[in-house]
Design a binder for these strands. Structure first.
Length: 153
DNA sequence: GCCAACGTTGGC
DNA sequence: GCCAACGTTGGC
């Protein structure tokens, strides 16, 4: 059964335009155990992804992608010069995982957080839940429907 | 730069 | 296992 996911990215670092350019990208730098467990246990190749731009002038949902690989060790945890270097991670038992994410398409226009906030169908969504700092989490199909319907309105 | 929320760390 | 201190996230 296919799951929909939301993945946050800071467009200054890596935007939906960048994903389109490279087509497929190792989604590295996830350093939260809950998110790590979902990458490991709950994602599947072919799952769909909402790409969300955060920490930027226009936060919101920018495009669609797909999970393109199984989970594998995030190489940045072993790179001493990386922001994501984790000296406590052991190569024999890597602490952090990633998956490849494949570009599907841009939304016709970015659906801003301001618009998401006023859509009643999303009032109970995790996306809008107070204090949600997870950079990866599943999205209910009916919430996805509501979001994609906003693309045409 | 501020601040609320929340995860992680480490002393006990 | 508790909990205070600290760090990070992310909107504004």
């Amino acid at each position: 059964m296919m799951t929909w996911w939301l993945m946050k990215t800071e467009p200054d670092e890596f935007s939906i335009d960048d994903l389109q350019r490279v087509e497929s990208e190792p989604w590295t730098g996830i350093r939260n155990y809950q998110a790590r467990n979902m990458i490991r246990d709950n994602m599947a190749i072919g799952d769909s992804v909402l790409i969300y731009h955060s920490s930027c002038p226009q936060p919101g949902i920018a495009g669609l992608a797909k999970v393109g690989s199984d989970a594998y060790a995030d190489p940045t945890q072993f790179q001493a010069d990386s922001d994501y270097f984790d000296p406590k991670s052991n190569p024999a038992a890597p602490r952090w995982l990633c998956r490849d994410v494949r570009y599907v398409r841009h939304l016709s226009t970015l659906i801003g957080l301001d618009r998401l906030r006023v859509q009643p169908l999303l009032a109970d969504s995790r996306l809008l839940a107070r204090g949600n700092r997870l950079s990866i989490f599943p999205v209910d199909p009916h919430h996805v429907d509501a979001i994609l319907a906003m693309e045409k309105s």
